[in-house]
Design a binder for these strands. Structure first.
Lengths: 186, 186
DNA sequence: TCCAGCATACCAACCGGTCTGTTTCACTAT
DNA sequence: ATAGTGAAACAGACCGGTTGGTATGCTGGA
């Protein structure tokens, strides 16, 4: 794998786990096994340009990963539970979550540049659009699909937050269990 | 108001809005209108001790604020919608949310000290316990109340995250609208 | 006079970022 | 085949500014 790709992949994980500010440049370089020269060669804009590249990369890999799960699922309900299942596996194994979310970055959005904020926005829109498409497949009306996809995204992200706070995967498990009953209603 | 209290109140808002790392010490001092001498006089442990004091303070004010809203509400559903309504007001007026949440801090928990993490954990437990109590009042079973209170907390926090990402209060509005239908089901 | 309650000056460490080399290597003219 | 060349891909010293933190000085009230 070439250096640039390796940089993006490593940095993406770090940013996802701990946010933007909390990841120092030197730590980043060490984790990637590169030097400042390499970083500023590939990303003249420095740390923030790397972040944006990571967000764009996330847009692709996340979309791919989620769509893969969604294609195997028979319903939105199954799909959501499957995604949560993956998160829980991550959490129980590594103690952190490096896939399917980037909430740590979002909470620092106020101090990011506009391009970075745009990339974040695009990412959430993409995720919700995948949910929405599946909901439409399931026979939901357009309006319904919009609000339910938002609701699903929110509760999963919120559940992840609670997991981080409690250092346990139980909140996401609870949410995974509640979702089926919730979907029945809609 | 005495200096120490003023420090805590001002710092709490900043930490809530932007997280721990993203708030610099000098900025903090300036916002509080104090100097380093004052900070380290009242909080020998520095920035982190101040954060912990803020979290403890939040535990009280948040509890008081939420309970106030809950006491006026006829049901958990109404109460949740009222809390969200307050958030939306904050968001539309100030562009940020300084009350009812502290998710920015949580997403940085991994790099905080154990006492700070404990304080975060306690805070979420407190919030959920208020929801739970109201749910029990509404006639929910013990187990049910536990999972629904978690679910409500998660979706609200997640909704807030989406609001930050999209720089709009629409996500929380949507969630506020969906909650009644959701509560019918349970 | 004594001490809580500050203010101020200062510090080493670290931050992200820039700069100036150096190595690697495909390509080419001889 | 080989020496020459230029650009890409780094390496790492260095920079000014900022960070959180400390040590000391001042000051008004008990």
């Amino acid at each position: 794998m070439d250096t640039k790709t390796r940089m993006i992949e490593t940095a993406t994980k770090l940013f996802q786990q701990r946010g933007y500010k909390a990841v120092g440049l030197n730590e980043l370089l060490q984790a990637c096994g590169i030097t400042k020269g390499a970083l500023y060669h590939h990303f003249p804009g420095g740390k923030e340009e790397l972040l944006i590249a990571c967000l764009h990369s996330l847009n692709e890999t996340l979309t791919r990963d989620i769509e893969l799960v969604f294609n195997c699922a028979s319903s939105t309900e199954d799909a959501a539970r499957a995604v949560i299942g993956e998160m829980i596996k991550d959490l129980d194994r590594n103690g952190t979550i490096a896939g399917y979310t980037f909430s740590s970055i979002v909470s620092e959005m106020s101090l990011l540049s506009e391009p970075a904020r745009d990339a974040c926005r695009a990412l959430y829109e993409k995720i919700q659009s995948i949910y929405r498409a599946k909901l439409l497949e399931d026979g939901f009306s357009s309006d319904r699909a919009t609000s339910v996809s938002l609701f699903l995204t929110a509760s999963i992200e919120g559940g992840l937050l609670l997991c981080r706070a409690q250092n346990s995967s139980i909140p996401l498990q609870t949410i995974s269990n509640v979702i089926p009953e919730l979907m029945k209603e809609f």
